[in-house]
Every structure is written in C-alpha cells, then in structure tokens.
Amino acid sequence: MDADLKLIGTLFEELAEPDWASAFLTGVCEATQSPAGALLQVDVASRRQTLPAYVGQGREMAVAFERKHAEGNPWRPTDEASGPPAGSVVVPDDALPLSALRRTAFWSDFLRPMQIDHGCGLIGFRSPEKVVSLTLLRSARRGVYDAEERAWLGRLAPHWVNACRLRNRLVPNERNESDATRALDALSTAAFFFDERGRCARWNAAADSLLIEGDLVRLRGGHLVAAHPGSGALFASTGATTVLRRRDGSVGGHAAAHRLPGHGALGRARAVVFVDSLTAMRPPLLRQALTALHGLTPREAELAERLATGSDLAETAAAMGVSTEGARTRLKVVFGKAGARNQAALVALVRSLYAVLGQNTSDT
C-alpha cells in the first residue's frame, strides 16, 4: 500500500513539467514486469498518435512509431471518439488474440523487433479533441495481463484520471504543441530541439532524414554532434552559423543555434539548431517520387532509398525494424513495381532519380 501511495504521489509532483508522467510510467512498468511502456496521446480529429513519454526504448522507437507505424496500430479503436471512457483498463488481447496480431504489419515491423506481443492500456483522459492513455508492453513469455494486474491498475485508475484532468488544465497548450510539430515537419530545413541539459529531445522530419543519412550530423548519447571532426561545435555561439563538413571533408551544410524561451507551443525546449544541407536531397522527396512514379508504398520507397545509399539488405532491415527475410520479400515486390530485374538495377534506377530530382531542386 505504501508503495502504491508513493507511486500515485509521483503523478502530482511535476504536473506542469514535460516529463510529468515518466516516474509514474516507470513505476507501473516495473510493478507489472513490462519492459516497455509509453504515454500515448491521440488527436481525435486527425487520429495522429504521439508518445510524449516512454520507458524501455529510445527516442528512435518513438519517432518510428509516430511517423511510420501509428497509422497501422490495430490496438486503437476504429472510432476514437466512442472508445473506452477515462478510467478504463483496456487489454487488446481481449479483442485481438496474439495469433491475429502476429498477422499484422504492425507486429512484424514494429512490435516483433522489440520482442513485444502483449499490451495493456489505462485511459486517463478522453474528450472530443484528444485521448491520453498509459500503454504497457511485454513479451509472450510474460503472457497476457491477468485479472490481478488489471485489478491493480483499476485501483490506480481514479488517481491517473485526476492527474490527467489537472494536467489538461495546467498545460492547455498541448494541442498547440501538436500543431507546431506538424508545422515543423513541413519544413525542408532540419530542426533539432534541446532541453536545459543540452540533450536532443525532439526533431522534425527533415532532421530525421539527416540522421538516417548520417553524413552531416549524428546523435551520440542524446547529444547532436557533427559527423566530421573538422566541423565546428554546434553550440559554439548562439545565432552564429557553423560550417558542417561531410565525412569526406567537403562542405555539406550549415548549422545555426538559437535560444528558446522554454515555454509556449514548443514546450520547454531551451534551444534549437537548424541544419541546412547544401547538396543532399531530402529522402522524403525521393520517396514521394518513387511512390508517384512506381506506385511504391512509403515503406517500399524507404527500402529502395536505403539500399540506394549503400546499405546492404541486412542493415536496411535492421534500420527499418523488420527481419532480413521480411525485407527480402518486400524487395521482390519493389522489383516488380519498379521494373527492376535485381537489386543492382533498382539501385541504379533510384540513384538516377535522385540525380534528376537533385538537379531540379537546385534549379528552383
């Protein structure tokens, strides 16, 4: 009982902070032997799903979920507006058995690489605009969340609901933050946002592309670093421009750091670094072209783009969170759609398209 009271207390200690639910989430994961968990927020109108907090996995997992896998999440209700009310304990296995889950792309591409088979949700807030829930994840070895665990979560539910309601009143601009995220993702310039410790807390879609490329900047221990040792420090002087060099030493772009107020639509981010690549075409543009010209799905286009940048099939599969055999199966489909006889022909096709789009980009 004392442990439960202490756990509940963590909910109300830092309600106005960005990571207000992290300690509670960690405690619930430990108590239920769940190696991973997340705070899931859903925008009802757009059905956009975001993970403001998570444990057991890195930021890369959250980015992969939000940008690639959320849309195919079979654990979400078809009609979000009429889903379970706040305070409900939801176990997806009740409606979707493991055998059926394992036939979905969501499991094979996202859950399986993390060795996740079962989930459990605790709804904390529901309104016509958004839904907030706690999601717990674990493997088949640990099994489905049982009646005792559900009852324990049910006892926590009233406190979780109260905390979510208070949070919604204290931080009314979370919707603005979601709108800001969508606006930032539309930028062609990469933007990296940092907390007060100088750790990269979030980034936009263009920044995600630069990280995949890995030729200008990288994340190391949560810190943004230049790929080439001869590049200047990214935080050397706020407002000044830093020249970034590619790994071969050539000038590849510029970075500029700016201080932020630590409040408003961007939450408590304290600084932003904008990185502009001089020559690299954004992979999203290439993937859009592959989709438009050859009918590739977004995941198929990503597979083709990664192979064209020099990654082998095993590396590509690992980066995409799928098995090598699964990637090989997808690749055969890509061959047929693109009219390529083999991987070499596909790479040549993608690189030629890359060159054409790069030329067009520089001409505009």
Rank of each mutant, 00 (worst) to 15 (best):
A36D: 00
T104L: 11
L346G: 06
A265N: 07
A180N: 02
G295E: 09
Q288G: 09
P35R: 05
T364Y: 12
F106M: 07
G267W: 02
T241D: 04
A3C: 02
S209N: 08
N204T: 04
F193N: 00
A207M: 03
L266Q: 07
E66M: 10
Q359T: 15
A186S: 10
L296Y: 10
D146C: 04
G154H: 05
S34D: 08
D79G: 02
A140P: 02
L285R: 15
P298Y: 09
S88A: 15
L224N: 01
L331G: 03
T364P: 04
A289T: 13
L266Y: 09
R59S: 14
T297Q: 13
V44Y: 02
E300K: 05
A317V: 02
S311H: 14
K68P: 00
R59H: 14
G249N: 07
D146Q: 07
G230W: 01
L313K: 10
E66W: 08
P284A: 12
A64S: 15
E66V: 13
P74Q: 13
L96V: 13
A265Q: 09
G252Q: 08
R67W: 15
L296C: 11
L357R: 13
L39T: 05
A301E: 09
S250Y: 05
D312H: 10
A340N: 06
A86L: 04
G295A: 11
T135Q: 14
D109K: 04
V272N: 02
G267L: 02
E30F: 00
H69V: 04
W203L: 03
A304M: 07
Q57E: 14
K337V: 02
L210I: 06
R351V: 04
F235G: 01
D146I: 05
A190Y: 05
A236P: 00
E174V: 13
T50E: 10
D215W: 01
V132A: 13
A207W: 05
S139R: 05
L210H: 04
R328K: 08
A227E: 01
M320Y: 03
T279Y: 12
Y354F: 10
V243Y: 02
L290W: 10
T291A: 15
A257N: 08
E13G: 07
N342Q: 02
A265W: 08
E149K: 08
L285C: 06
L219W: 01
H118G: 04
V161D: 10
R306K: 11
C29M: 06
E66K: 06
F65C: 10
R182M: 09
L331F: 03
K332D: 06
T361A: 15
R48P: 01
V44I: 15
L293F: 12
R126Y: 06
G221I: 08
A36G: 04
C200Q: 04
Q288C: 09
I123T: 12
H228D: 12
D93E: 13
I116H: 06
L153M: 13
A327L: 03
R138L: 05
R259G: 10
V356R: 15
L260H: 05
L98R: 14
A289H: 14
R182Y: 03
R197N: 09
P284M: 12
H258K: 10
A344G: 08
R282Q: 15
L96M: 11
P128E: 12
L260T: 05
A62I: 09
L216A: 04
L303S: 09
V63R: 14
S209G: 11
T316R: 04
R218M: 06
S46Q: 05
S250H: 13
E196S: 11
D215P: 00
F125N: 08
A21M: 14
A38Y: 02
G143R: 07
